[in-house]
Structure formats: C-alpha cells, structure tokens
Design a protein around this nucleic acid. Structure first.
Length: 207
DNA sequence: CGGAAGATCCACT
DNA sequence: GTGGATCTTCCGA
C-alpha cells in the first residue's frame, strides 16, 4: 500500500450527508503503545444536527456531553452509551451546526490480533467481530471519551486517504437503532460497502 | 432528586 | 429471536 495522506480539516467541513459516503474506504489509523492499528471504514451514518430527531443536536440541544459535536468539522465526538459502549463520530460542517458522521463498522487492515484482544472475545472470531459495530469499533481501537473533541488530522487517532468506493459499490439505507426518531428514522443516511462481511447487522438488502 | 431511556453487544434458546 | 448487562445523561417534578 502506498503512502496515505491524512484527511485535512477541510474534508470534514461539508454537509454530513456528503462527508459520510466519502468516508467509506478511508482508513482509521490508531497509534497505540508503539503499534499501528488500521481499520478500513465500511459503514457510516450521517446525523444532521438540530433538524434531525435522531441526532444528539436535535432541536439545538446543547449539553455537557455533546459540546464537541458543535465544534468545527475535523474533530472527534465520542460518547458513552448503554452503560458500556463508546461511539466514535467525525464532526462535520462548521462550528455550531451539530452535524456528524458515526463510524459504524471497519474492516481490519493491520493489527487485527491486537484489536481482537481488546475486544476480549472468547469465541472463535467471525467476520465483524473485530469492528462490526460502533461499540466494537471503539473497543477494538481503545477509543473512549478521552478522544472527545480531539482533532482527527493529527495525533494517535487519524483518518487517512484510502481506495475510493464507487457509487455501485455503495449501499444506502435507513439508520440503525433510532426507531424513536419519527420521520427521521427512515431517512437514507446509512452508507456501507456492498457485500462487505464486516458491516454490522442488519445487512442492507441487495448487499 | 428520581426515573427512564439510550446512535449496543453478547449469550442463550 | 429474545432478554440481560450496565451506567451516564437528561429532563421533569
């Protein structure tokens, strides 16, 4: 694999629904204790700020938890959920908007064994076990609230270029786990790579 | 101050 | 397919 450049802050300063599909195929590079862990992004979801009932920024809500969600695009928004999991977002757009893209799944490219250790699974690994879900992804990369608000263009957690994903290789559908969000639950803001076995359940139809 | 819910995951049937 | 784990965060009283 050739030299991969880190995505600049400008990359993120666009609408979330535009950044989200553009993140597919990109790499997440995590430097941890001298080791380089790499995931290829295979599934994401866009969250559209104040007008999106599924977003933590719904109705312009500002709280202590979601403070970094309103930063300029290019930083992480990490939150704790269900008493035991973290979710990693890339903040998009511009300061005050509250737009973000949730990383839902990644394909292990490098350091799979270490990531599997982080996951603490005792059963035989299957595709998706390493990072086939937003909580799994964070556990695999050891990403927690310490990364909330941290820039993604430098430091121990970086997003880089990768092989582009064409529209034909892409699947679009409704987001997962937001049944409470009314009309917004049906919006086609989930993007994944067609047929990729590391995508989280439920698999999009036609994949 | 208390209750309820949550952008989830896993084991078990 | 279902239910339990587990606890921070938020909102209403």
């Amino acid at each position: 694999m050739g030299r991969l450049r880190t995505l600049p802050p400008k990359f993120y300063r666009r609408p979330a629904e535009e950044v989200a599909p553009d993140l597919l195929g990109r790499l997440v590079v995590r430097e941890l204790e001298g080791e380089r862990l790499i995931l290829r992004i295979v599934e994401v979801e866009a969250y559209l700020g104040a007008g999106d009932r599924a977003s933590h920024a719904w109705n312009g809500r500002h709280t202590e938890r979601n403070r970094s969600l309103y930063a300029d695009g290019g930083v992480a928004y990490v939150y704790f959920i269900y008493g035991m999991h973290f979710c990693l977002n890339a903040v998009t757009g511009h300061r005050g908007n509250g737009d973000a893209v949730l990383l839902r799944a990644g394909e292990p490219i490098r350091g799979a064994e270490t990531m599997l250790e982080h996951r603490g699974l005792r059963r035989t690994p299957r595709p998706g076990d390493v990072a086939g879900g937003p909580g799994k992804l964070c556990q695999a990369l050891k990403v927690d609230r310490d990364f909330d608000g941290v820039a993604l263009s430098r430091g121990p957690l970086r997003f880089t270029e990768g092989e582009p994903v064409s529209a034909e290789e892409m699947v679009t559908g409704p987001r997962i786990g937001i049944g409470y969000a009314g009309d917004a639950a049906a919006w086609p803001l989930r993007f994944s790579i067609r047929g990729n076995p590391h995508v989280s359940r439920p698999r999009p139809r036609g994949g």
